[in-house]
Design a binder for these strands. Structure first.
Lengths: 248, 248
DNA sequence: CTAAAAGCAAGAGCACTGCTCACATTTCTT
DNA sequence: AAGAAATGTGAGCAGTGCTCTTGCTTTTAG
């Protein structure tokens, strides 16, 4: 005779394992939201899940390993939010896309301050980001850069139709520094396949810095007793920044 | 007869206390530079100073208290560096001052990454900055804003000599947003006594965000595998930012 | 100058942490 | 069904922040 219901060959064990892994992460996230990353306790998680603390180590090799998983999830969480927001706007409305993305990042940061701090704050001591994190970490900057690229390509296409040479809305930055700038950005220029000139990319990175900087300054308390209405200030700043980054 | 050398009335004990306090902080700073803030251990400090761990509590009420002292020191350290650099440049060379200040902050951050993370990274869990920190924390932003104010005043003085009304190099940002902007910055406008219009101050804060954001992105590893030469990129960015902030 | 008061150091101890290891138990594989 | 692999358990180690009692020294007051 054959067994009535043979437990799936790769089945039941792997499934319960995935579930427990998710439960551990969920508990960790819950704890993270309350107390922050530094006081995340494996034993507390084990207590909440009614298991021995040593059992956690069957699922995560160490506390840092758990943190890394949370970091990856956080990167993906903010990444998917940004991508969804960006997807809801016509590709050619680059200013709107930029502002919407920035506001979405800030909103997510406010809803998940500890997760934001986890990925954009100071890295935990002696902790070096493993390779698994670098991929999801690129989602947000890639979204921002894609706005830049779209804008650059459409604007150069327009000017090419009008004029002949002299492409793009280049500014008065001395062209003697172009070489140095290109060299300093060689890696990322290579990565995006030189779809935009170095100066445009530089503007994008600087904008990324301003977006991230303003959010962090506010979230980490440096605007306390200074800025009365951070949300309004941020939104107006992003409108202004979009113009400075993309042109009027 | 009188005593030969009467130990200073408020003297010997207070002095040795100050010395020991300094030694504790020094040891803590040493440990901070190596392992980062989160793994700062009172017991390790006690071991290094050959004293009982409980004795530390005669000098600092808690670990957070020690951290606060280090935070204040860090704020002062970067503040004094910035102020010295700024003092070495003629008051009217606002662009140069801005760039020099920004570069000084970045240099300090690279020399003291953990102290930078301590003050500009994510705040430690459940930790709210006590009042002692807000004063030294203002030194850097005040230096940046003073550049703005100096520039604004000299540029308006110049244009007032030339034209009649229409003061300052205002840009095309819709004036309908001015009210909202002013309101959102009411606190800091009040603090600096409305020496500059809200839009100018906003530009300053945005620049502060970009300076801080670029340094943090780089220092916290977000430029890994992206920017080949962060120093060159930062310097060029600051020259460009100075122009965007102050005008050409 | 002496006695009380205040400051200081030490050590034991509590509750907590991450992590390891030997040992059961359960599930999958052959 | 038997062996192998994965999983859960509890004890235990080394470390942490912090408290409290106990003795000692310095400072201050009478």
């Amino acid at each position: 005779m054959s067994k009535d219901v043979p437990p799936r060959a790769p089945g039941v064990r792997a499934r319960v394992r995935a579930e427990l892994t998710a439960e551990i992460k969920a508990s960790a996230r819950r704890q993270l939201a309350v107390d922050g990353a530094a006081s995340l306790s494996l034993r507390a998680i084990a207590r909440e899940l009614d298991m021995a603390s040593s059992a956690i180590y069957r699922y995560f090799a160490s506390r840092d390993d758990l943190l890394t998983a949370l970091i990856v999830d956080a990167y993906d969480a903010v990444g998917v939010v940004v991508e969804q927001v960006d997807a809801g706007i016509a590709r050619d409305l680059c200013h709107e896309r930029f502002v919407a993305i920035a506001n979405a990042i800030r909103a997510w940061a406010h809803e998940n301050p500890h997760e934001y701090a986890l990925i954009y704050g100071s890295p935990v001591p002696g902790y070096t980001a493993p390779d698994d994190t670098i991929d999801p970490a690129t989602r947000v900057p890639v979204a921002l850069i894609s706005v830049l690229v779209d804008h650059y390509q459409s604007s150069t296409a327009a000017t090419e139709r009008a004029a002949t040479s002299k492409a793009g809305g280049g500014d008065a930055v001395a062209s003697t520094t172009d070489d140095a700038l290109s060299a300093s950005l060689a890696q990322i220029l290579d990565f995006i396949d030189y779809q935009v000139p170095a100066s445009t990319l530089a503007r994008g990175l600087q904008s990324w810095g301003e977006v991230f900087g303003l959010i962090s300054l506010e979230l980490f308390g440096h605007f306390n007793n200074a800025v009365s209405d951070p949300e309004t200030f941020f939104e107006l700043s992003m409108v202004s920044l979009a113009e400075r980054t993309l042109g009027p």
